[in-house]
């Protein structure tokens, strides 16, 4: 029995959710999500510093889905989505949490896990140096990012990137990335 994505999504929807979406991640969808969440962070009167961090992390998270989500498995219910992704934004007294999910081919899992582990083991100073190194030395990829997105998220939040690869089928894993943005940051 493979993972039930619909149930998994439903379980992410707690009382703190201010935004959720599941489906094709197109450029237009990204615009709508950014607008909606930006409006809500403004209405919540969060300090601009937090609002900007949330916006930045949201941009990188969504564009990671846009550029890197693998095409959906052949047995997946939503065959219409070119790039299938899920995003859930939570807000509570300790800050924001942004969770994204997408399909990843199993042969790419190790590379992604290694990258996340490397970031999580690094100090904030090391992450800043790492960011600068990639910016300076890595050639721009056709996807444009040059692999800076996750490093940037870790740098801006100062938090570990919580992640999980769930087994979907022989070929695919379902990747969950969960990012906290603390409401009170002194760094």
């Amino acid at each position: 029995m493979s993972l039930n994505v619909e149930n998994y999504f439903r379980n992410l929807l707690t009382d703190d959710v201010i935004f959720s979406y599941k489906g094709d991640i197109s450029s237009e969808v990204i615009n709508l999500i950014l607008d909606s969440v930006e409006r809500q962070t403004k209405e919540a009167n969060d300090p601009s510093k937090i609002r900007k961090k949330v916006y930045n992390v949201l941009v990188e998270s969504l564009q990671n889905l846009y550029h890197h989500a693998d095409p959906v498995p052949g047995d997946f219910e939503d065959q219409g989505s070119r790039r299938f992704g899920m995003i859930v934004v939570n807000r509570n007294s300790s800050g924001y949490n942004i969770t994204t999910c997408n399909f990843v081919k199993k042969n790419k899992v190790k590379q992604l896990a290694d990258k996340l582990d490397k970031i999580n083991k690094s100090s904030i100073q090391e992450i800043k140096e790492f960011y600068k190194f990639i910016l300076h030395h890595q050639k721009i990829t056709p996807k444009g990012g040059g692999g800076l997105g996750l490093v940037d998220i870790a740098r801006k939040t100062g938090n570990e990137l919580d992640y999980q690869f769930l087994d979907y089928n022989k070929e695919y894993a379902f990747f969950r990335l969960s990012i906290d943005i603390n409401s009170l940051q002194d760094n």
């Binding site: 900007k52 916006y55 930045n56 941009v59 990188e60 564009q63 910016l135 300076h136 890595q138 721009i140 996807k143 444009g144 990012g145 040059g146 800076l148 997105g149 490093v151 940037d152």
Partner: peptide, 13 residues
């Protein structure tokens, strides 16, 4: 006001 990581490389260029 904002720039994404995909722009950061281009700004460097």
């Amino acid at each position: 006001e904002y720039f994404n990581t995909s722009s950061s490389k281009c700004i460097l260029d």
